[in-house]
Design a protein around this nucleic acid. Structure first.
Length: 299
DNA sequence: TAGGCCATCTGGTCCT
DNA sequence: AGGACCAGATGGCCTA
């Protein structure tokens, strides 16, 4: 019904951050799957849901909808000049629900629905933000990761980055460990060269053992050292392949689809290479400016 | 056509 | 009291 469409359409006009996302996001394209289309096909969803309500309520609901629209918009941050609607809703909310008239109940219900919708939209925005930093192929031709796949891939990615950091620290300590005195003045940053204060994280320092991670909290380090930890273990934590039904998604998300298998034969010991980037990209990948993205060949 | 994924609605519960 | 959070139900869309 148009009611939901009006509510949904009122959201993009909201000054909130999700507006930017929703505006730039062409969910109707079908890339996001049925759900993606659902968010912008308010008519379909509303028709389905409104069909639950008695048909005779439609007109009433529509009138209530317009009033509730003001309330919703006001709730979303607009400077609503119509205080009557908000006052009516507040007044009705003060009543017992049993005493509320049907339009008032509907208005309250719409308000709650809108709030819940906004909450879910915010959740989806956060989920998309997570997808954006995930090392899998992005693009219009690549199917979007499902929510569960996104979460599982994110978990794997965090674990893998943790292990990568540990591995790099270990290598650095191996390289510079025996030449600490010689390398120290030049190799260390200014603060470190001065050694004004003991730096546990210094490569040559005994305390720089990976077990005492200077950056990550102990929990993160311990999580990296899961049973059978090490780089190969990260690949073993990947989610079930069944989560990636489409081969394109599996190819686009190596962390999910088994892209870690090449680790054993790779000349570069940096586990970052397991993700997607060629060995010479891991510096930029560590920088996080541009996470390695697989070739958008998928599909 | 079945199954997966999703958005939305809705009622309940918990928190501030 | 109001809002946030959660889970179940429902129905639409898409893909194999």
């Amino acid at each position: 019904m148009d009611s939901d469409a009006s509510l949904v359409s009122s959201r993009p006009s909201s000054p909130e951050p999700d507006e930017l996302f929703l505006a730039g996001r062409n969910k109707g394209g079908g890339g996001g799957g049925g759900g993606g289309g659902g968010s912008f096909t308010g008519g379909t969803v509303s028709s389905s849901t409104q069909s639950d309500s008695p048909p005779e309520l439609s007109a009433e609901l529509r009138s209530a909808m317009s009033a509730a629209g003001v309330v919703v918009v006001d709730k979303l941050g607009f400077k609503s000049s119509s205080s009557s609607a908000s006052s009516a809703s507040s007044a009705s909310s003060k009543k017992d629900k049993k005493q509320m008239t049907e339009p008032e109940l509907q208005q309250l219900r719409l308000k709650i629905n809108s709030r819940e919708r906004k909450r879910m939209h915010d959740l989806n925005i956060a989920m998309d933000g997570l997808r954006e930093v995930m090392p899998y192929a992005h693009g219009p031709s690549v199917r979007k990761l499902s929510k569960i796949a996104t979460l599982l891939l994110a978990r794997n990615y965090i674990l893998m980055l943790t292990n990568s950091l540990e591995e790099m620290k270990r290598l650095v300590s191996e390289i510079y460990g025996g030449h600490h005195a010689a390398f120290h003045p030049a190799a260390c940053p200014a603060g470190m060269g001065a050694h004004s204060a003991p730096l546990p994280a210094h490569p040559g320092h005994p305390a720089s053992h990976p077990a005492h991670h200077p950056i990550l909290p102990p929990a993160a380090v311990s999580s990296a050292s899961l049973p059978g930890s090490g780089l190969s273990a990260v690949g073993s934590i990947r989610p079930p392949h069944g989560l990636l039904k489409s081969p394109s998604a599996a190819a686009a998300a190596p962390g999910l689809g088994g892209g870690f298998q090449h680790w054993g034969g790779m000349p570069c010991p940096c586990s970052m290479c397991q993700v997607a980037a060629p060995p010479h990209h891991h510096v930029s990948a560590m920088g996080g400016a541009a996470l390695p993205r697989l070739a958008s060949d998928a599909k």
